[in-house]
Amino acid sequence: MDYNKQDIEFAFTILNHREMLDDEEVTEWLKDPAHLALMTDITVIRQKLSHRDYKKMKKEVGLHIKQEIRNDRNRRLITYWSSSVAAILIIGLFIYYSVGFPDTQDAINTKTEFAIITPGRPQARLILPDGNVKELDNLTRTIETQFIEGVKNDSLSGLSYSQVKIDTSNLSAAEIYNTLVVPAGGFYPIELSDGTQVWINSESELRFPVKFLSGKREVFLKGEALFVVKRDSTKPFIVNINNASIEVLGTTFNVNTYADNQCIYTTLVNGSIKFISNKNKQEVTLKPGTQSVTDTITGNTSIREVDVKNYISWREGRFIFDEMSLELIMCQLQRWYDIDVFYQNSMIKKHKFRGVINKDMPLEKVLDMISEATDIKFNVKNRTITIYK
């Protein structure tokens, strides 16, 4: 979207000379979603230039920002904040910008409050049948035990069991299991022996047969994972989760069983799956673009249509917050950045936001974006975040 010169000049007047404008005039101007987007653009671009001395170079910075908005709009990290938080956004901008851009020293003082908390990375532990634990790193290697050979760990594609061989002659059970545990601040991909691909999110674990030998392919999940199941009409694929199971033949779907949701969310990208609640024996069949929501207390399950990209974006390296409460946003950040979170009061948790953030950003930048658009503030000490207004 291109902005005209008058809109850009008016936005800069709000940011730098708020006292010159009438409150009703500003409020009316900001009712236009395009004007809100313009203010967001300026916020993001100003953050890129936070190292500059605005008192000495304000004119130059202003020209730079105007040019960035015209030529660089498609590269911004946050696109739009929802209309439901427009009033909060306006208040936040008035408070933050009524004193003008901060000078360099102020910016430095703010930065020193933050610990350097980096994004998550590929990391996991593999628990073998004999109880031994392998810490998986970024080295390519073959993992072998007394009964298993041919398991490969690659720095790019993760674990692969596609060429696995097992010796069951000395084992009491036909199928033997491994467990992949992904800690906070991590994620890990795996290819199962049948060619099914699974991406496992932070604070999650998957228990699976080293090789599928029985009449069904059965795995056990805690946390969240995205499955791309290899089709096999003779062997249904079953995902066992908290008091429920999912049956498929070949499809792509995401399962979220995190306890902070108090629900199980199963989102179907393509194909068809059946969700079965063990609590009340309710069965529902999902179509692409739908999601089942299961209450973990009652077992009751409902189906709704959703934008699936909001629920698989974590696999693609993004957070998509679509009318999401601050509490649920911080739960995602807590797992990804391996942090602890505390709230000044419970009402803060209910604030809702809409936006897109890249997962490779340092936590400081993510919190800055939320803080600059609202009246929410963050205090960071080591790996503990305190949220207040």
Rank of each mutant, 00 (worst) to 15 (best):
52 R>H: 12
29 W>Y: 06
133 V>E: 03
91 I>P: 03
107 A>V: 14
1 M>P: 10
1 M>E: 12
186 G>D: 06
300 N>L: 05
72 D>A: 07
204 S>K: 00
325 S>Y: 10
306 V>Q: 00
316 E>M: 08
63 L>T: 10
96 Y>S: 15
57 M>I: 10
256 N>G: 02
227 F>A: 01
364 E>L: 11
386 T>C: 06
53 D>F: 08
148 I>N: 01
245 S>L: 02
172 S>M: 13
83 S>N: 11
114 F>I: 08
189 P>L: 02
222 K>A: 04
89 L>Q: 05
68 E>M: 09
313 S>Q: 06
256 N>W: 00
297 I>W: 09
388 Y>P: 06
233 S>K: 15
126 L>C: 05
181 V>H: 02
305 E>K: 15
10 F>A: 06
346 S>A: 15
33 P>I: 07
333 L>Y: 02
208 F>P: 00
145 T>E: 11
1 M>H: 11
6 Q>V: 08
246 I>S: 00
385 I>M: 03
299 G>W: 02
292 S>W: 05
173 A>T: 15
64 H>G: 11
133 V>Q: 06
4 N>A: 09
42 I>V: 06
30 L>N: 07
65 I>F: 09
346 S>R: 15
138 N>R: 14
129 P>E: 01
297 I>D: 12
104 T>V: 14
66 K>M: 09
275 F>I: 05
341 V>R: 05
